[in-house]
Amino acid sequence: MLHDFVPPTPRQGPRRRPVFAAAALAGVCLTAAGCAGDGGPGPGAGPESASGPASSTPSSTPSPRRSPVPDASPSSGTASAKPLPRGPLSGRTVVIDPGHNPGNRDHTREINSQVDIGTGRKECDTTGTATDSGYAEARFTLDVSRRLRTLLEEQGAKVVLTQDGDRAFGPCVDERARIGNRERADAVVSVHADGSATGNRGFHVILPAAVNGGGADTAGIVAPSRELGERIAGNFVRVTGSAPSNYVGGDTGLDTRDDLGGLNLSTVPKVFIECGNMRDPADAALLTSAGWRQKAALGIADGISSYLKR
Results as ranks from 00 to 15, higher is better:
residue 10 P to M: 09
residue 219 A to Y: 00
residue 262 G to T: 08
residue 235 N to L: 07
residue 11 R to G: 11
residue 152 L to K: 11
residue 88 P to I: 02
residue 51 S to P: 09
residue 158 K to A: 08
residue 149 R to N: 07
residue 307 Y to W: 04
residue 77 G to T: 12
residue 89 L to G: 06
residue 57 T to G: 04
residue 224 P to Q: 05
residue 19 V to I: 08
residue 300 I to M: 14
residue 234 G to L: 02
residue 80 S to F: 01
residue 253 G to H: 04
residue 304 I to P: 13
residue 126 T to F: 02
residue 228 L to A: 10
residue 103 G to R: 01
residue 47 P to Q: 05
residue 227 E to K: 12
residue 301 A to K: 05
residue 289 S to I: 01
residue 26 A to M: 13
residue 225 S to D: 03
residue 200 N to M: 12
residue 260 L to Y: 05
residue 170 G to I: 02
residue 85 P to D: 08
residue 97 D to H: 06
residue 111 I to A: 11
residue 301 A to E: 08
residue 251 D to R: 13
residue 217 D to F: 08
residue 12 Q to T: 12
residue 218 T to I: 04
residue 130 A to M: 07
residue 71 D to R: 08
residue 155 Q to G: 06
residue 125 D to K: 02
residue 208 P to K: 07
residue 210 A to I: 01
residue 105 R to C: 14
residue 54 A to I: 08
residue 180 G to A: 14
residue 13 G to P: 01
residue 288 T to P: 11
residue 68 P to S: 09
residue 107 H to N: 14
residue 20 F to G: 06
residue 40 G to D: 15
residue 302 D to I: 09
residue 261 G to A: 01
residue 15 R to E: 12
residue 46 G to F: 14
residue 265 L to M: 05
residue 14 P to G: 12
residue 203 F to L: 05
residue 271 V to G: 11
residue 72 A to W: 06
residue 224 P to V: 01
residue 198 T to D: 15
residue 195 G to E: 12
residue 192 H to F: 10
residue 162 T to Q: 03
residue 157 A to Y: 10
residue 176 R to N: 09
residue 39 G to M: 15
residue 22 A to R: 14
residue 158 K to G: 00
residue 87 G to F: 00
residue 185 A to L: 12
residue 24 A to E: 13
residue 258 D to R: 04
residue 18 P to K: 04
residue 200 N to T: 09
